[in-house]
Nucleic acid binder design. Structure first.
Lengths: 243, 243
DNA sequence: GCAAAAGTGTTGTCCTTACACCCATGC
DNA sequence: GCATGGGTGTAAGGACAACACTTTTGC
């Protein structure tokens, strides 16, 4: 970066333009790892790859970033184009950049993670090109999308333990059993039912709706909803060095 | 690396190329937030901005990503070019992409965080263009580098509580007081000395060197070093939903 | 009445916190 | 001998883990 040599009596703007002009240019995309939850299984939304290279392989939902669009906007746009939603959770996870990760040339991609409620949001899945798939560790995807998906899953595991994101995956009203199933599916572990209930009740943001499940072949459970207002108070305190 | 590319019929390759050809191209850089620690203060390595727009402002160490280089490699290269080091800690934190964050045109940048030991690594700071600065919250930087630095600091705060990264900032042999000062500087808090010691001794990876400090105007403390082998055993267990 | 899951408490252990005094060294 | 920080222990409270029985509903 030898800008010192360019300190000429030209306008600053021009110098800056010249400098950036020397940088290699590349295509930039976003890829969304859209998680859902149904039938007690963690799902991910995939589309048939648009390249013959990867025919018969599924891929994440992605698209190019426009010239005047930041990455967040691009991710929201992709999500909106595919699902019709724009008020959902979305967060940047990591950028992937292996020089030949894309067969069509140099493309770097920012991975975004999104959590949506499958039941509440009817997608245009009738296109048959867009489908919910079980999220398993040995899923096979196009490009480097397996790596991306794996990163997002690990990110999600951490994240739902520090922040009540999981609620984005559930219907507005849910039973504690559903909530626990969700955690067990994401964390891939079994949790003690009583301790799980205690834990969530002690954090004061589950609100009893007074309703109960009505289509189960056993004693119905109470339905709760997430009270955002109550949640916005303690927020976490840090300090306690964990390792 | 990419066997798919090799085995593809030409036509597919062409289609892929055409597709990527329609994507807007942009410059991509990496910016390194390089933390150091000396005089009991958290430092960050900055360089005089290379653009007149930001004359008198300091900026992070960054550079363009080459056409055939991935982001990690670019970050290591920047670090090596500036500090001569290539075996240091380095991790991608987040990618920043506001369309007009750079006055010279569309440039997106991947922020990397690095921790290096100031004392052990003599930089070419005699250039006087490259200096260690105290890391404070009201630091003023060029471009959107304040935002980037702030993100990296928050990231670092979380990270040193989950992983013993802090040792990268300390000399090979250090006293517990130095270690505590480091944590206090990064977390911006005071910690109880006795509890801090207990905590770190109970995690079994501090190794007593048998040596003591020798230039302090008070009772010298023992010097320890970090035992990587011992550390690589428990690793953290997860599960315990925190919020 | 039986299958299936909901709902509920207690106890022991461990981790975290708060807190005060003596010790070793340099000057 | 005094100033400075090094070094240590304990007790209380809170969080977590383990664990079994009764209740309600559908069939």
């Amino acid at each position: 970066m030898n800008e010192a040599e360019i300190t000429l009596p030209i306008s600053n703007k021009k110098i800056a333009n010249q400098l950036v002009g020397t940088y290699p240019k590349m295509a930039v995309t976003v890829d969304c790892v859209i998680f859902g939850f149904s039938n007690n299984e963690l799902k991910v939304l995939l589309i048939k790859s648009d390249l013959n290279n990867f025919k018969d392989k599924w891929s994440l939902l992605g698209n190019a970033v426009e010239a005047n669009e930041d990455l967040d906007d691009a991710a929201y746009r992709v999500l909106r184009e595919r699902t019709g939603l724009d008020d959902v959770f979305l967060e940047q996870v990591k950028t992937f950049s292996k020089p030949n990760r894309h067969p069509g040339g140099r493309v770097i991609t920012a991975a975004y993670c999104s959590l949506i409620n499958i039941a509440h949001h009817q997608l245009k899945t009738f296109e048959n090109e867009l489908q919910w798939h079980n999220f398993s560790n040995d899923i096979t995807l196009a490009f480097d999308h397996e790596e991306i998906a794996k990163n997002c899953h690990i990110w999600l595991q951490k994240r739902i333990q520090e922040h009540p994101l999981g609620f984005n995956l559930l219907p507005e009203k849910f039973s504690l059993r559903e909530l626990q199933n969700l955690y067990e599916a994401i964390l891939r572990t079994k949790l003690d039912r009583r301790n799980f209930r205690k834990k969530f009740f002690s954090m004061d943001f589950l609100e009893d709706t007074g309703e109960i499940e009505d289509d189960v072949p056993h004693r119905p459970g109470r339905l709760y909803k997430f009270n955002f207002k109550k949640y916005e108070k303690d927020k976490r305190k840090w300090i306690g060095i964990d390792f």
